[in-house]
Design a protein around this nucleic acid. Structure first.
Length: 605
RNA sequence: GGGGACGUAGUUCAGUUGGUUAGAACGCUGCCCUGUCACGGCAGAGGCCGCGGGUUCGAGUCCCGUCGUCCCCGCCA
């Protein structure tokens, strides 16, 4: 027998949503359904705040006018699910609540059905803040009843719809690609799925649909997109989950600029969902300039760039500072920091972490004592204001002055200075104010970073690796350097960056089999190895592959930024913890020996 | 793989130099209350101090280990 204290829904139909009722609805008869957010029991008068996805509305139960209904309402508790039939009444002026959207009205109850009760929840969805994430994730269904989470998930839905509409309008087809596919040994670690039919063989979950979307271009689908889950078995961060969603797209016959245009168009549509009107085109910056000016391939444009101030120093100055005159001397400028005590200046040095070769010199205030002339020149070169903190970074003298070593050392100077710039910027964010969250479009500093290097040298392995991925096309004029000078080959690869966060990454791909072969050779892959890893793809390239290119953007990160959240977990309904555990369903779990045996996987003794 | 922070009531937290019976607020239960909206008042229940070991006459507090959550580095073509 079912519980007798619960009422049946019967043929009762919901007529309105709680949060949508206004003074204009006064006199209307409504049927509402939702959760008891709060009960305020004044004895002979009971107020119930009823909550659904749209908000909260107050329902009044008066003992005098309906004793049995009032009695029933007194028995309601937090998170009970009810249906209430009643009449919307405009509140008397003194009882209006300006803090609630529906505060000008209330519902005079005529019927109440208790559809379900609830255990006392471990935390209340009506609470303002809940800090224990472990609990939130375990009881995710309660957490997601909170208005903040409801808003985030709704925003996510609207953003992805807007992007779909925009891309669809531009002639893109959304085409699905497999989740059970082939392991590719390059890149991130794969999540593997064992094959029962072929013991010892595994499918891999895709890190991205890269090769499939290229195959779709070969198939003539011309403009493809997919809002698609990707999987990477690497350690997590606040902005990294093992499964995440990408806005993945690919086009045939595009220029790099055409790809940028498409992305800018759908980002405008996406940001409009959060009330932000972006103004493309976004600025573009070459990778080399990004590294020199920001010491990063994802520059945060909200603060001024670094400047090379080597010319401010004489040869003697550099000797006195034991700096290599062939290496850059970089001034890092953080605006509006103001006067600092000696202790604060020392503390700042704690934030410095040098890559080999880079050397923190000091801040300007201190340099001034020993090198007054250099500092004078430097000030005018870097455009410094009085309140700005300026710190100077250079390259130490080392024995190995080969071109490769010098290039590495220069990179180290820029990269260390760039990291220091961000650390200082974070520390003094309350002073310069550039990192404040706001709703204005001008605070979203987008940037296209272009002309990435094609290859990166791996010291440990002693060989060249693809900086982006091995299907990225080099600049046509750099084709000749593929084998002679791989380090100088520029790729038609690009990133889109927002306020120092990488939102997406793409490239114009290789469509010619001969070039693809050369790239594999440059990467030290023999024809045989290339065949065994990517044979199906190399074969496909031989059947009339059009020039093509595309990009993939992280949807989770975009929504996180639009929601003003600090973690992807705030915008993913069912996220995983830092150790890749789902606390709600308790995954992963061991499986039975029988299951393992069936899959041909050895059982641990 | 490495570094850091945290773990005490359902929840958020306090807990002094190691010393009687481990506290507060919110929540919960009961009673009172007709205009509340974080309702209010009175009363009450509620604790493996994450877990294991050690030091000590005595451990929430000190030490070692372990587990969990979060942040960062490595890693993420």
């Amino acid at each position: 027998m079912p519980d007798s204290h619960l009422d049946l829904l019967g043929n009762l139909q919901r007529t309105h949503m709680c949060g949508t009722l206004r003074a204009g609805d006064a006199g209307r008869s409504v049927t509402l359904m939702g959760w008891v957010n709060r009960r305020r029991d004044l004895g002979n008068l009971v107020f119930i705040d009823l909550r659904d996805r749209t908000g909260i509305v107050q329902i009044v139960f008066d003992k005098e006018s309906n004793p049995s209904l009032h009695e029933k309402a007194s028995g309601l508790r937090s998170e009970y699910v009810i249906a209430a039939v009643g009449t919307v009444k405009k509140r008397d002026t003194p009882t209006v609540n300006k803090n609630v959207a529906t505060g000008e009205i209330e519902i005079i109850a005529e019927e109440l059905r208790l559809l379900n009760d609830s255990k006392t929840p471990p935390f209340s969805p009506s609470e303002e803040a809940i800090s224990n994430e472990e609990l939130r994730l375990k009881y995710r269904y309660l957490d997601m009843r909170r208005p903040e989470m409801q808003a985030n998930i709704e925003l996510r839905s609207r953003v992805s719809l807007a992007i779909r509409q925009e891309l669809s309008k531009r002639g893109f087809l959304e085409i699905e690609t497999p989740f059970m596919t082939r392991s590719t040994p390059e890149g991130a670690r794969d999540y593997l799925v064992p094959s029962r039919v072929y013991p010892g063989s595994f499918y891999a979950l895709p890190q991205s649909p890269q090769l499939f979307k290229q195959i779709l271009m070969i198939s003539g689908f011309d403009k493809y997109f997919q809002i698609v889950r990707c999987f990477r078995d690497e350690d997590l961060r606040a902005d990294r989950q093992p499964e995440f969603t990408q806005i993945d797209l690919e086009m045939s016959f595009p220029s790099q600029e055409r790809v940028f245009e498409v992305v800018e168009e759908f980002l405008v549509a996406a940001f409009r969902q959060a009330g932000i009107e972006l103004k493309p085109p976004f600025p573009r910056m070459k990778y080399d300039d990004a590294m020199r000016q920001y010491g990063s391939d994802k520059p945060d444009l909200r603060l001024p760039p670094m400047s090379d101030v080597r010319a401010a120093f004489t040869e003697e100055n550099l000797n006195a500072l034991t700096l290599d005159p062939l290496l850059p001397v970089v001034a890092v400028r953080i605006p509006k920091v103001g006067e600092l005590s000696r202790k604060e200046r020392d503390d700042n040095k704690q934030l410095w972490s040098a890559r080999p070769g880079a050397k923190l010199i000091d801040d300007l205030k201190r340099l001034e004592k020993s090198f007054p002339e250099a500092v004078n020149k430097l000030r005018s070169m870097s455009g410094a204001e009085n309140e700005d903190l300026i710190v100077v970074v250079g390259g130490g003298v080392s024995e190995d002055r080969s071109p490769i070593a010098m290039r590495k050392a220069a990179e180290a100077v820029y990269a260390s200075a760039g990291a220091f710039r961000l650390a200082l910027a974070q520390k003094y964010k309350d002073r310069h104010g550039a990192f404040k969250k706001t709703q204005s479009a001008k605070d979203y500093r987008f940037l296209w970073v272009t002309d990435f290097p094609m290859f990166e040298y791996d010291d440990k392995e002693g060989r060249w690796n693809a900086a982006h991925h091995p299907f990225t096309s080099p600049h046509e004029e750099d084709f000749g350097k593929l084998l002679s000078d791989p380090g100088a080959v520029r790729a038609l690869a690009y990133d889109i960056v927002l306020n120092g966060t990488e939102l997406g990454s793409g490239s114009i791909r290789i469509h010619r089999q001969d070039i693809q072969k050369q790239i594999f050779n440059a990467l030290g892959l023999s024809d045989e190895e290339a065949r065994s890893r990517f044979g199906f793809f190399l074969e496909a390239l031989e059947y009339g592959t059009p020039p093509h290119g595309g990009i993939a953007l992280g949807l989770d990160r975009i929504v996180m930024i639009l929601a003003g959240a600090d973690s992807l977990r705030e915008v993913i309904p069912f996220p995983k913890t830092a150790k890749a555990v789902d606390l709600m369903v308790d995954a992963p779990t061991p499986v039975s020996a029988a299951q393992l045996r069936e899959l041909g996987i050895a059982v641990k003794p």
